[in-house]
Design a protein around this nucleic acid. Structure first.
Length: 280
DNA sequence: GGCATCCTGACC
DNA sequence: GGTCAGGATGCC
C-alpha cells in the first residue's frame, strides 16, 4: 500500500519520536516469515542496547539507523503499518512484531496481509547491497530531467509497467503511477520508445508533482494506510483518476473515466485527456 | 512482457 | 464463490 508519499510521511513522523531511544528487544507475536534476515530471537539479541540515530527513506523502505552501523529496515508491501506507542496502549489488530525501547515505549509492525518484511543489516555494505538494484529517488535534486531522459531512453514498452518498475525510478506504485500518467496526459499503454522530448519532460514533472502533492496531504488512505500515529492521510480526497468509479466524469473534461487492466493492476485513465494517438 | 504467488478481508 | 486491494519476485 504505501508508496513514496506514505513512507515519507511515516518516516517524518517516526523521526520525531524514535531518535535517541534505545532498543530493549523484539517481541514476536506470530508469522516468523516477516523476519527477512534473522530469526526473532537473533534479531532481538542484535538490536538490544542499540540506539536510534536517524530515520530515512529509500524507495518504499523505512530505514532506521542504529548505533554501531546497524540498520533496521522495513518494507510494508500492501498493508503494513508502523506505529509508535506506549507499552500499555491497546494493541492494534494485525500486530505481528513489537520492537521495545528501554523507556517502555515501542514500535509496532502491523500488517493485515503479512507481506511486509523487516530486515536487520549489520553494516553499511549489507544495506547498500540490498538496495543495489533500486533506481534513483525522484524527489532528490540529483534526479533532474537529463537523468530521467537518460534512464527512460534505454527502456521500451508500455509506460504504466515501466513506472512501477523500481529500477527505473523508485517510489511510484499503482496510485501515483496512474495519477502521474493522467497529469502528463499520456496513455498507460503508450510505448516509452515513442515519446517525444516534450512528453518525457511532462512525465518527469508529473511524477514529482503527484508525489509532492501526496506528501503535502500526508499520504493516500484508501483502505489500510495509517501514519506513524495511526492517523489517516487525506490525499484520497484529491486524486484525479485513481479509484474513481467506472464512468465517473473526468474532472478536467467530463469524459467518463475508464478502468483497464495493465500488468495485473487496475489502471484508471481518461480516454480524452490521455489519448493513445501519436506513435502508440 | 505476462502470470502466479505470498495473505486476509471486503464486496458483489 | 469469485474478484479485487498502495508490492515485488521468480518463473516462462
Amino acid at each position: 500500500v504505501p508508496e513514496l508519499p506514505e513512507v515519507e510521511t511515516t518516516v517524518r513522523d517516526l523521526r520525531q519520536m524514535l531518535i535517541g531511544r534505545r532498543f530493549k528487544g523484539v517481541t514476536f507475536q506470530d508469522w516468523e516469515r516477516m523476519f527477512a534476515t534473522h530469526p526473532p530471537t537473533v534479531m532481538s539479541q542484535l538490536i538490544k542496547g542499540e540506539e536510534v540515530t536517524g530515520l530515512t527513506r529509500r524507495a518504499k523502505y523505512v530505514v532506521i539507523e542504529l548505533t554501531n552501523g546497524k540498520s533496521l529496515v522495513f518494507h510494508r508491501k500492501m498493508s503494513g503499518n508502523l506505529f509508535y506507542r506506549h507499552t500499555e496502549d491497546e494493541l492494534e489488530k494485525y500486530t505481528h512484531i513489537i520492537f521495545g525501547f528501554e523507556d517502555e515505549s515501542e514500535l509496532r509492525f502491523s500488517d493485515l496481509r503479512k507481506f511486509g518484511r523487516v530486515y536487520l543489516f549489520l553494516d553499511e555494505k549489507e544495506k547498500l547491497d540490498h538496495f543495489a538494484k533500486l533506481g534513483p529517488e525522484p524527489l532528490e535534486d540529483s534526479f533532474d530531467f537529463a537523468h530521467f531522459n537518460a534512464v527512460l531512453s534505454k527502456r521500451k514498452g508500455a509506460l504504466k509497467p515501466l513506472l512501477l518498475d523500481q529500477t527505473l525510478v523508485v517510489g511510484l506504485g499503482n496510485i501515483y503511477a496512474n495519477e502521474a500518467l493522467f497529469v502528463s496526459g499520456l496513455h498507460p499503454l503508450r510505448r516509452a520508445e515513442t515519446l517525444t522530448e516534450a512528453e518525457k519532460q511532462k512525465l518527469f514533472l508529473a511524477i514529482r508533482q503527484v508525489l509532492e502533492k501526496g506528501i503535502e496531504n500526508r499520504g493516500t488512505s484508501l483502505s489500510d494506510y495509517l501514519d506513524g500515529n495511526g492517523q489517516k492521510g487525506s490525499n484520497q480526497e484529491h486524486l484525479f483518476v485513481h479509484f474513481k468509479k467506472k464512468g465517473e466524469p473526468c474532472e478536467t473534461c467530463g469524459t467518463p473515466i475508464e478502468i483497464m487492466r495493465v500488468g495485473q493492476r487496475s489502471t484508471y485513465m481518461c480516454p480524452t485527456c490521455q489519448p493513445l494517438s501519436s506513435g502508440q
